[in-house]
Design a protein around this nucleic acid. Structure first.
Length: 419
DNA sequence: TCTGGGGTCCTAGGACCC
DNA sequence: TCTGGGGTCCTAGGACCC
């Protein structure tokens, strides 16, 4: 049995945890640079606020309906996420954090102990609520795709109260028949449109297709989805937990940049983020892509990207930052209004099977990196960083509606006034 | 006045080489 | 006279997810 646990409108719910005044109000959270709406709480959802619309386009509508608007407080969300995942982890024998607010759980042998999965789901919900103040939905299913579907039912369909279980054909058909095909994990709007032309409307319609025919018409991914919807496991636990094959860090700037110094500072910061992510999954990269670009909405669009190959694969922040120094002059173009930049590690290999080079000594120093990671894990990311990250903060993101860092900054800790 | 997220994986098509 | 294969690498863009 698998389960998928995720938070209801995570960012918006996180904003409500330490701010009782907005708990019963419509709340939305914006993406980086206050660009788009990315989270809509259930109360705000009733106002049919669309996700991923540019904020400035619906600003007036939000004001008119007295909607509380917040910038992304990533420091707060990351910390609450970690607490939430720690609680969830207690209830299964293995779990995999799939994104900041969702986690796959695996239960092997639990069926002998647990007679009622729905009850068990409520136990998990109550524990997370009690210990973090976050509302979560829980979906159980015999395959990861069905667990995802049950999770959808738990949160969106009437009568489930936050927990749904698929454990026989009746519950499976019941839930899948009420789900649109585009609510299935892996079926987006494009595939959805094509499927609708074949009169495949609901998730159950899709489940009833011939898997081989689906493969011929679409892809092996759709075939796998059909099988999974029928309880035939195609994604093994190891595949669900697989390491990333590419790791990117990209960001748009708070304001357009024309100087080379802030561009370099931003890219070195991305180098540090990518290297940290690589180390976390015990990977090294042989090749990275470094890019900078103007806004695609600009009249003349400028984008330059460069590949950089390392002689020996690396996950060392300093080595990747040095690559930035080497290419920055080629990337930079004077009088260009840079809008975003980033770095991606695109050819990864495991650090456990590292092949040394006979003629070139690796510049990596794992001990220094481990030391930096340990300090940053304890005192916060950025406590220790590469000097050129700090050259300037001119590129920092815009966050006009930022809430306090309640859990990660001493000065922001909530105070209860007892008078 | 002007504003438009970020991450991962996959594939089609072009360039180049033998 | 005219025809014409197959592999690798790179890039851009599509698709999906949250």
């Amino acid at each position: 049995m698998f389960a998928l646990v995720d938070a209801v409108a995570f960012y918006a719910s996180a904003e409500k945890v330490f701010d009782p005044a907005i708990r019963h109000k419509p709340v939305v959270v914006l993406t980086n640079n206050d660009g788009c709406i990315c989270a809509v709480c259930p109360i705000a959802r009733q106002l049919s606020i669309p996700k991923f619309q540019p904020y400035f386009k619906i600003k007036r509508y939000l004001e008119h309906h007295d909607v509380v608007v917040r910038s992304s407080n990533y420091e707060l969300y990351a910390d609450l996420s970690e607490r939430m995942m720690t609680v969830i982890g207690r209830f299964c024998d293995d779990h995999y954090v799939y994104s900041i607010d969702e986690s796959f759980l695996r239960f092997s042998g639990f069926s002998k102990v647990i007679s009622d999965w729905a009850d068990y789901g409520q136990v998990i919900r109550r524990a997370v609520w009690r210990e973090t103040g976050l509302p979560v939905g829980v979906g159980f299913g015999p395959t990861p795709t069905l667990a995802k579907a049950a999770n959808h039912a738990a949160k969106k369909l009437f009568g489930y109260n936050g927990v749904a279980v698929i454990n026989d054909d009746k519950s499976r058909c019941e839930i899948l028949s009420k789900m649109a095909v585009t609510d299935v994990w892996g079926i987006g709007s494009r595939l959805g449109n094509k499927l609708k032309q074949l009169n495949i409307q609901t998730a159950l319609d899709l489940a009833n297709q011939n898997p081989k025919a689906m493969r011929r018409m679409f892809s092996v991914v759709v075939e796998r989805t059909v099988n999974e919807l029928n309880g035939v496991a195609c994604l093994t636990w190891d595949e669900v937990k697989q390491n990333k094959k590419e790791i990117f860090s990209t960001r748009s700037f708070g304001e357009r940049i024309t100087d080379i110094t802030p561009l370099k500072a931003a890219l070195v910061t991305h180098a540090a983020i990518v290297a940290r992510k690589l180390r976390r999954q015990h990977s090294l990269t042989k090749r990275i892509v470094i890019f900078a670009a103007s806004s695609p909405h600009e009249e003349v669009y400028y984008k330059k990207s460069m590949l950089y190959d390392f002689i020996t694969p690396t996950s060392d922040t300093r080595v990747i930052a040095k690559a930035v120094s080497e290419v920055i002059n080629t990337l930079y173009k004077p009088d260009t209004r840079f809008y975003r930049c980033g770095i991606g590690a695109i050819e990864l290999e495991s650090e456990y099977f590292y092949q040394t080079d006979m003629f070139n000594k690796s510049a990596d120093n794992p001990k220094i990196m481990t030391c930096i990671d340990t300090i940053n894990n304890r005192y916060g990311v950025g406590a220790l960083s590469i000097g050129s990250e700090k050259l300037t903060q001119k590129w920092a993101m815009r966050r006009a509606f930022l809430s306090p860092h309640y859990t990660t900054r001493w000065s922001d800790i909530p105070v209860i006034d007892c008078d």
